[in-house]
């Protein structure tokens, strides 16, 4: 059995601050929180490294395909719907903003650039986090508290390889594909409001879309999607896998806390990473 598949550095550690004098407790608790954050960050990085390496082990293909179905295919409906309405709202808002300056012909460029560079990857990642990321955390968390992960270890199955690696690989495959769908349907949404409803020339709309987008815009969007995929899958699986290490909660409550943390942290890190990646790409 590969029992040391991955263990959280804080497992077995006592809660800080309980034995300190009363006046020291706020500092001790603050210190404990900082230690927890830093440890979590380091542990997540190691967890990601281990997860990545284990993708390339045998018998992973079918597990990855299954996860692509759960993370990607099953999220496509919500992603397409959000993409359509985002494009429609952008078409509407930008048309009225541009028409003031007599430059409504630039609608295609405005919609295409904002969707492909920013909104597509970010909103797709947020949508997948809400739908599939939370499910990942909850599922793995329940497996943890019901000893299914321990059972895997006792059967000689590496739980990181069996549960986590396929999800990381599937996320890296699904995020860019869904981002591409989001971009396409968003452009169609912009077309619907700008051309069909508000009467812009369709040729002008498509010409400006094609003219303004460059290969680096599309590549940049996909790079972001991949970065978000790694972040979201790591955060969500890590939170579920170690939900039992939250000292303030046990059982089902620890799963609910882990799921909430996973969604919030993923959304925050998506925005932080978006800024960082954009600043590198610009």
């Amino acid at each position: 059995m590969d029992s040391k598949t991955f263990s959280h550095p804080l497992i077995g550690h006592q809660k800080h601050g309980n034995g300190s004098p009363v006046w020291q407790r706020p500092f001790a608790n603050l210190g404990a929180k900082v230690i927890r954050m830093v440890t979590d960050l380091g542990a997540s990085a190691l967890f990601l490294l281990k997860t990545f390496v284990l993708i390339f082990r045998p018998k992973q293909i079918s597990a990855i395909i299954t996860q692509v179905y759960h993370i990607g295919a099953k999220s496509s409906g919500i992603v397409l719907m959000v993409g359509l309405f985002t494009g429609m709202v952008m078409g509407l808002q930008m048309y009225y903003a541009l028409v003031t300056y007599g430059s409504e012909a630039a609608l295609g460029s405005a919609v295409a650039l904002s969707l492909v560079r920013e909104l597509g990857p970010v909103l797709t990642a947020v949508m997948i986090t809400a739908r599939a990321g939370s499910a990942m955390t909850a599922e793995i968390g329940i497996q943890r508290i019901s000893e299914q992960i321990d059972a895997l270890q006792t059967m000689g199955i590496n739980p990181v390889k069996y549960l986590i690696s396929p999800r990381l690989a599937a996320s890296v495959i699904s995020f860019p594909i869904l981002t591409a769908f989001f971009d396409l349907i968003g452009l169609a949404g912009g077309f619907l409001t700008g051309v069909v409803l508000l009467g812009l020339n369709p040729g002008v709309y498509f010409y400006r879309v094609c003219d303004s987008l460059t290969g680096s815009d599309v590549t940049g969007g996909f790079v972001k999607a991949i970065v978000f995929a790694v972040l979201v899958s790591t955060i969500c699986t890590f939170q579920g896998f170690f939900c039992h290490t939250h000292s303030e909660s046990r059982g089902a409550h620890s799963v609910s806390i882990a799921t909430t943390s996973a969604v919030v942290l993923s959304c925050v890190w998506i925005l932080v990473a978006d800024y960082v990646v954009t600043s590198f790409l610009m």
Binding site: M1, E139, Q143, E147, Q148
Partner: peptide, 24 residues
């Protein structure tokens, strides 16, 4: 060693109190 431990634990099987069956 890590390898020896792996071989050692491979000889075991464990039936959990709560069964730990995969419900999916």
């Amino acid at each position: 060693s890590k390898k020896e431990k792996k071989t050692f634990y491979r000889q075991f099987s464990y039936m959990f109190q709560g069964n730990a069956m995969f419900d999916s």
